[in-house]
Every structure is written in structure tokens, then in C-alpha cells.
Simulated scan of single mutants.
Amino acid sequence: MGMKMYPKDHALLQAAGNIEERRGNVTAARDLYSASRHIELSAPALIAPEDVAEGPNIAMVRKLFNEALLIGPKHGPVYNAFGNLERRQGNVDVAKQLYEDGINANCTDAPSVFHGLAKLHLSLGEVEEARSVLQRGLALFGGGSANNSNNYNG
């Protein structure tokens, strides 16, 4: 009903895309995300295709992530999603740089970027590096003393 009343509201189209994605309607979700992008480019709308791509065109997804970073250079979810994509593609150095770039940009949702970088280190068997990243994040964002992290067993 809201989309009929406000057909040019990109946020409503994006929300509807999220609903369709959760329901498993990939084509409908992709169409709604695309319609949202045509009304107003925003970082969340640009990263949405990565989540619903069937056999994603990696070059296109990378292009969208780069556009999202130009539009929202402090949008943490973009750094995290882009880093996750590159990690899954086996581009460890690129993924690591993306996570670090997000951290250095003092981006929104930085804890998720620290978490992404720590997961990357863990996937490489680098437990101490992962612990160090998580301790850096805790020191910046609270959540307890970094000394308490010594109880972490990986």
C-alpha cells in the first residue's frame, strides 16, 4: 500500500526488496532493489544485489561496491560485505585491505568490520592476529576489558 501511495520512495522499495529476499523471491527482490537504485543511489541499495545474486557477476558486484564506497565512504556494511565477498573469492589480501580501510575510515558499524577482519584471520588459522583485532575493537568500542579476552579459547 505504501509503494502505491509513494511510488518514488526508494526506502520503501528497498524494504520491500528485503521482505521478498527473506521470502526467497530472489527475482522480485532484485527488481525492487534495482527500482530503488534508479530513484536514489544509496550505499544500502547498491550492496543489496550481492545478497540475492544467483551465480553473481562478480565484476558487476565489485563495481557496485566501489560505487557504494564513493557514495558512502564511511558506510561500514559496505566495507564488511565487500571484504566478505573478496574473502569468499580467495582474495585474502584485498579482503584484508578492505577491512582495514573501513577501520581507518572510522566508518559506521565499525565493530562489524573488526569482526570481519577477525574472521578472515581465523579462516587463515591466525588465531593470535584475530585476537589482536578483536582486542583493538574492544579497546575502541568498550564491551569489557581487553584482558578478559584472554579467556577466549578460539
Rank of each mutant, 00 (worst) to 15 (best):
R37G: 06
L69C: 07
L70W: 12
G137W: 02
N57W: 05
G137F: 02
L46F: 07
P49S: 07
R22E: 06
I58S: 10
N80C: 13
N25M: 01
Y33E: 03
R37T: 12
E67L: 15
K96Y: 12
Q97E: 14
N18A: 01
R62T: 10
A105T: 09
H10G: 02
K119S: 13
N80F: 09
R136H: 09
R30D: 08
P44A: 10
G72L: 02
L134W: 03
G17E: 06
E40G: 10
F82L: 03
P56V: 10
N84G: 10
A11F: 01
M60R: 14
G137D: 02
N18T: 01
E129G: 03
L13T: 00
L70A: 14
D93G: 13
G137I: 02
L138M: 14
S36H: 04
V94Q: 15
Y6P: 00
T108Y: 11
G76L: 05
E67R: 15
D93M: 15
E21V: 00
R37V: 09
N57S: 14
N80S: 15
A29E: 00
L69V: 08
A16C: 08
E100P: 00
G24M: 02
R22T: 07
L46C: 05
A16F: 09
A139D: 13
N106W: 09
K8I: 00
I71K: 13
L46Y: 11
A29G: 03
R131V: 06
G55R: 14
Y99A: 09
A28S: 06
R23V: 00
E40K: 15
G90P: 10
E128N: 13
Q135K: 15
A139W: 06
I103M: 06
H115P: 00
A15L: 07
E129D: 13
D109M: 11
K8S: 11
N66P: 00
G17L: 03
M60C: 09
N18M: 05
G83T: 07
V133L: 01
F65N: 05
E86P: 08
L124N: 06
R23Y: 00
I47M: 13
P111K: 09
H75T: 05
D9H: 08
L85H: 03
N104M: 11
S112L: 11
G90K: 12
A139P: 05
L98H: 05
T27M: 07
A16I: 04
Y99H: 04
F65P: 08
P49G: 10
H10S: 12
G55K: 14
F82W: 09
V52F: 06
L69T: 06
I19F: 07
A81K: 15
N57M: 08
